[in-house]
Structures are given as structure tokens and as C-alpha cells.
Amino acid sequence: MAERAQYEELMRQFSAFGAVKRELGRIMPSDCPSGSAAVLTLLGRFGDMRMSRLAELLAVDMSVTSRHVAHLAERGWIDRSPDPTDKRSRIVHLTPKGRAQLELLSERTTQLLADCLSDWSDEEVAQLTRLMARLRASFDDSRVAVPPRLPPPALELEATTRTPANT
């Protein structure tokens, strides 16, 4: 197991990774925030799906997913249709306009990564990809394994002894 100092350095690197995410966000079209881009990416990768599955893949609450889906539907990038097996549920799918938007996002992010990592070898990029996938999988596994948060322990009071009163 790694030393505490290694985990502390890893946390500093996670914080610094925020700059990478911000830079990726800067190249996105103004009408396509990161949450919307994530929905488009998932639909492009996995195809049509129920809203509940989309929320699960995004690892966010259903209300957050609904806002992202409404935003995308307003722009004509996705359609929602009733689930034939459960009319209360909706199936979400990309439209041709949404596929074009996804292609634009992919081109922009791919070009930025290619520019910023131009001095990396193919193996280094592949290694980073493998390690990030493994990190994500470890956190997915831990969501199941970690028990819910427990309340903080109660402060223990010192035991007091009563002595009988003098009579």
C-alpha cells in the first residue's frame, strides 16, 4: 500500500486536474456545458437509453439528469420518447443534429489533447488512459463497498462516582 505522502501528493494532483477540466470547458460551445456534453457522449457511446440509466451512468440525481436532458432537447440535440415497456419512463436518443454536435465536441477535445500532449509518447497516453480507467473503476467498486456515513462518535464522559452523603 502506498505511503500517506503519496496519497497527499495524489490529492494535490487531483486539485491541479481542475485546471485541465477548466481548459476543456473553455473550448466547449457556450450552449453546451460539460453536463450536456457528458449526456451527448454517453448517448453516442451506449445508444438509446432510459433516463434512469443515464442518471446512473452520470452518477447524478435524476433531477440533475432531467435538467441536462431538457437543455439538450430544447436545442434539438436529443429526443425523448415513451418507453414501450413502461409508459411512465422515457427513452432518450440522439438526433442527427445531436450527432453533429457530438462530432464537433469530439473534434475540439481531441485537438486540444493532441496539442497539449504532443510531447507524450503513444505509450504514455495509453498508460494514462489505462490508469484513469482503473481509478474510475476503483471508485465505482468503492461505492458498493463503503458503508453509509456513520454519525460522529459521541463524546465519552468520564465516569463519576457518587459517595454516600455523610449522615
Rank of each mutant, 00 (worst) to 15 (best):
H68A: 10
A114H: 11
L102H: 04
H71F: 06
D141N: 08
T129Q: 08
S52F: 04
L113V: 15
A16R: 08
R12A: 11
T167W: 10
A73E: 13
H93V: 05
F139L: 05
D31N: 05
S15A: 15
R12E: 14
F139Q: 06
Q13N: 03
E124N: 07
A133V: 08
H93P: 09
L112N: 05
P164I: 12
L42F: 12
M28S: 12
I78C: 11
G25T: 09
A19D: 13
S81I: 07
A137V: 06
R67T: 08
R67K: 05
L104G: 09
S106W: 11
A133W: 06
L117S: 07
S34F: 14
P152D: 04
G35Y: 04
E56G: 02
L10I: 06
G44Q: 05
A5N: 10
T41K: 04
F46K: 11
R134A: 15
R134K: 14
A145F: 15
R130G: 00
T167H: 13
A137G: 07
L135W: 11
R143D: 03
D115T: 09
P147M: 03
E124C: 03
A55I: 01
P153I: 02
R143Y: 06
T85L: 12
S15E: 03
R90V: 06
P82H: 07
N166K: 14
P96D: 08
D122K: 14
A133N: 08
M62K: 09
P148Q: 06
T85D: 14
Q13H: 03
P153A: 06
R67D: 02
A55F: 00
K21W: 03
S30K: 12
A100H: 12
V20H: 06
P147C: 01
S89I: 04
R162F: 10
E103T: 08
L72Q: 01
L94V: 02
E103A: 10
V69C: 09
A55Q: 00
T163L: 04
T65L: 01
S34D: 12
P151V: 01
D119C: 08
F17M: 11
D61F: 03
Q13L: 14
G76M: 01
M28D: 14
D79N: 13
R99S: 13
V69G: 05
R108E: 15
Q6M: 14
G35N: 07
E3M: 12
G18D: 05
T167R: 15
R130Y: 06
Y7N: 04
P152G: 02
H68S: 09
D141W: 13
E156D: 15
F46T: 05
K87R: 15
R149D: 15
L58M: 02
L10A: 13
G98K: 07
L24T: 10
R45V: 06
K97L: 15
A154E: 09
V144K: 12
T109C: 02
L112P: 00
A165E: 13
L42M: 11
R136T: 06
S81P: 01
A59Q: 11
P96I: 03
S118G: 09
R88K: 11
C116G: 10
P147Q: 04
E8R: 08
P84V: 01
E74W: 00
